[in-house]
Design a protein around this nucleic acid. Structure first.
Length: 605
DNA sequence: ATAGGGTTAG
């Protein structure tokens, strides 16, 4: 262990009283030797020997060797940050490059807090930062979501005059985006003289991280029309993610095409986001076939496939993928188990669910989170084990959240258990994450039990609390454009023809036995007004619009932000018969695949 | 030496 001894003989590091003087020629020669020594290093042991050699030459105190030593040790694959730090501390006079190296190395090591410590140390010592210092720092702030600190350091950028450096600007856009301060991102973006592909990508990613998916597509459109666009993987991956969230299959397909034309070999990240896009846009077969063709899969690829299958109601198949993952020797993480447990719940596999729940802890050492408990409650609830589900909740070591109670409440609705439904609702109403839908469910349960006094009470309670009801919307893609319809929409340019279509459809539907189900309209208005409101539900508008603007037989795919009301569910089943269309609706939680008058959810949702 | 990417119950 020659290397270790170097560290132990600390006298090596004391500065020589009379440092060796090199002639110009000799200096260049030593520099070359130093570089080639460092280049040859394949591991930390090699490096320690190279280090010792450089010390022996008496070249250690030269700034050239100092910089390269620290950089080699800190930033290479085999490097050791601790060891690099120990060398760094030997320097009496570290300069900008050495500090930059330490900052970058700490960022690379995900040690963001210490990266910032090095920066402040740098300022304290009066070492001036340069334009290479800031991108790394803003990356650290982005990860730490340290908005205040980021803004402060942004101020330093002006002080030192790097505000027009392209890389600094891009990292600022990214930092503000990650901190949720998109208006600051935009401010930096707009002040740029010249925007690079990365600047656009960063602003697109900033929109994405805030869930502003529609805006993502708009910015991408601007990027293309301003001619600043080169097909780069990372931009397209963000775009795919936007398509996934918006259910924009056609645009997703175009993006896939652009990738195939421009990138010779798609990496795991791109492939994973493609699969996710296809599956969550309702094109399961394509997602599955891409998944099977993958040569290298990681945890995330499996997660995407498992939870995607679960979402489509293919629980058994999802479990098959899970076993495949174990066979491949990959270690499942907590996210994979969320998918696995939800698969069991969708497939009604109660024993298997408990089995996986135990295995998660015993074999993989994962402590269950609220999400896992939520899946278990859903699993029992769907299977009609309402009492067991309540007991399970009461024995949870962590505080059950609103989703857990809501799961139980939904199960009580399906299995007509008013008594426990009231308990679940009580917990929800006492929390501050209650939703309009919770009141709707309970009120419907009372209505079914013909407890009209209670129904009235719930409605008064709702009105009294007056909490904000999220407006429902549906997205439908026609001609590669996303059309958004809000409930009772009057803003879409072709609203007139849509309502005309709704009116025509009404007669056809009536012949098939449709009668509006107003029980879920919670407004205090008369029956006729309720029927009018039902007609304006966003999903119906989107379907009518798609029927007008797509040719016969084209499947209709809709993505919506809320769950469906029972009237829209019945309505869509009938439309699928009358107009001979397959209609896929993705709601908040799952897929509904309507075909020939039936739905894939088997009316349980 | 500098920037940007994918998954999470109901």
């Amino acid at each position: 262990m020659a290397g270790t001894s170097v560290l132990q003989q600390t006298n090596f590091f004391s500065p020589p009283a009379d440092p060796p003087q090199f002639s110009e020629l000799n200096l260049r020669l030593k520099e070359q030797q130093c570089l080639s020594l460092l280049k040859r290093c394949k591991n930390l042991e090699d490096f320690k020997q190279a280090h010792a050699q450089i010390v022996k030459w008496g070249f250690f105190w030269n700034s050239f060797s100092a910089s390269n030593l620290v950089a080699a040790c800190a930033l290479s694959d085999w490097g050791s940050l601790d060891y690099a730090c120990s060398i760094f501390q030997q320097f009496h006079d570290p300069g900008t490059f050495e500090f930059n190296t330490m900052i970058r190395a700490h960022v690379k090591d995900m040690n963001f807090q210490d990266a910032l410590v090095f920066y402040y140390e740098m300022l304290e010592r009066g070492v001036e930062p340069d334009n290479f210092t800031y991108p790394a720092l803003f990356k650290a702030c982005a990860w730490l979501k340290a908005k205040e600190e980021g803004m402060q350091i942004h101020g330093h950028v002006f002080k030192f005059g790097f505000e027009s450096d392209l890389y600094v600007q891009n990292s600022l856009i990214n930092m503000y985006g990650k901190c949720g301060e998109i208006q600051h991102s935009c401010a930096v973006f707009e002040q740029m003289d010249e925007k690079s592909v990365a600047s656009w990508s960063a602003i697109i990613a900033a929109n994405a991280s805030l869930g502003m998916w529609y805006e993502c597509l708009m910015v991408f459109g601007n990027m293309s029309s301003e001619g600043c666009w080169r097909p780069e993987e990372s931009t397209l991956v963000t775009l795919l993610s936007a398509c996934t969230h918006l259910g924009a299959l056609d645009l997703g397909k175009c993006t896939h095409g652009a990738l195939l034309r421009n990138i010779s070999e798609l990496n795991v990240i791109v492939q994973t986001s493609l699969i996710d896009m296809y599956v969550k846009c309702g094109y399961l077969e394509k997602g599955l076939s891409l998944f099977k063709k993958m040569t290298k899969r990681n945890q995330m690829s499996y997660t995407v496939m498992i939870s995607g299958l679960a979402m489509q109601g293919h629980g058994e198949e999802a479990l098959g993928i899970y076993s495949m993952m174990l066979e491949e020797g990959l270690d499942p993480d907590d996210v994979v188990y969320v998918g696995v447990l939800s698969s069991c719940s969708h497939a009604g596999l109660v024993d298997e669910g408990f089995n996986c729940f135990d295995r998660m802890k015993s074999e993989h050492g994962i402590e269950p989170t609220a999400q896992h408990y939520g899946c278990m409650v859903d699993l029992m609830g769907k299977a009609g084990m309402i009492n067991e589900a309540l007991e399970f909740i009461n024995s949870m070591p962590i505080k059950p959240n609103d989703v857990v109670w809501r799961s139980l409440l939904s199960a009580c609705r399906v299995h007509c258990n008013l008594e426990i439904g009231e308990i679940a609702a009580k917990h929800l109403f006492e929390s501050n994450s209650q939703k309009a839908g919770d009141y709707v469910i309970l009120s419907n349960m009372y209505a079914r039990a013909e407890k009209w006094v209670e129904v009235a009470k719930i409605r008064t309670e709702m009105a009294r609390k007056g909490f904000n009801q999220v407006p429902g919307f549906s997205l439908v893609e026609v001609g590669r454009r996303i059309h958004k319809f809000v409930s009772q929409d009057t803003s879409h340019p072709r609203c007139g023809s849509v309502y005309e279509m709704i009116h025509q459809m009404e007669w056809q539907l009536k012949f098939e036995g449709y009668s509006p189900d107003t029980s879920q309209v919670l407004l205090d208005v008369d029956e006729e007004e309720k029927r009018q409101r039902l007609k304006g539900h966003s999903q119906k508008l989107a379907i009518a619009f798609a029927l007008i603007h797509t040719s016969k037989g084209t499947p209709i795919r809709i993505a919506r932000n809320l769950r469906m009301c029972s009237d829209c569910h019945t309505y869509t089943k009938l439309v699928s018969i009358i107009y001979e269309r397959e209609i896929t609706v993705r709601d908040r939680n799952q897929f509904h695949h309507f075909k020939n008058g039936t739905c894939s959810c088997r009316d349980y949702w």
